[in-house]
């Protein structure tokens, strides 16, 4: 009986700890696709800076299209939380060889999603080499 209590306590403790971890860097792999000219969009990912955020925000859809020579990424986020979520996002772009194109210049943008609602955000590649992107999400300051 005492052993059972100890095991239950251990499970509760581990769950609580993993939930509170501030920078667990959870990653959600989204559907890979192809651009309008047939180029593959490889390893498109959403990177959350906290597991709390990753639990509360889900990716509904990721699409991309060409605007002139540039790739435009469009991501629809949905809040699973009942209350308003305030956080930040940025798109990081890479070429087909995985070289970062805007790692230094990509800026964080604020985003607010009301409870259980969804919002669509867009990111334009910095130049025509941009074929792969990462969406980074972090808690608001």
């Amino acid at each position: 009986m005492q052993l059972l209590k100890l095991a239950a306590l251990l499970i509760v403790g581990i769950t609580a700890l993993s939930g509170c971890s501030p920078t667990s860097g959870a990653e959600g792999r989204a559907r890979s696709g192809w651009t309008d000219d047939g180029a593959p969009m490889l390893n498109t990912k959403v990177v959350y800076n906290s597991s709390t955020l990753s639990r509360k925000v889900t990716i509904e859809e990721m699409t991309s299209s060409k605007v002139g020579d540039m790739l435009l990424a469009q991501v629809t986020l949905r809040s699973k939380a009942g209350d308003t979520l305030s956080f930040q996002y940025k798109f990081e772009w890479f070429d087909l060889d995985g070289l970062a194109l805007n790692a230094a210049s990509a800026t964080w943008k604020p985003l607010i999603i009301y409870g259980k609602e969804s919002k669509t955000i867009q990111g334009l590649a910095p130049d025509p080499r941009g074929r792969e992107y990462k969406l980074l999400l972090r808690d608001a300051d």
Partner: peptide, 10 residues
């Protein structure tokens, strides 16, 4: 295919 593995682009 146009949008799939082993496509025109590849």
């Amino acid at each position: 295919p146009w949008r799939a593995d082993d496509n025109v682009y590849a």
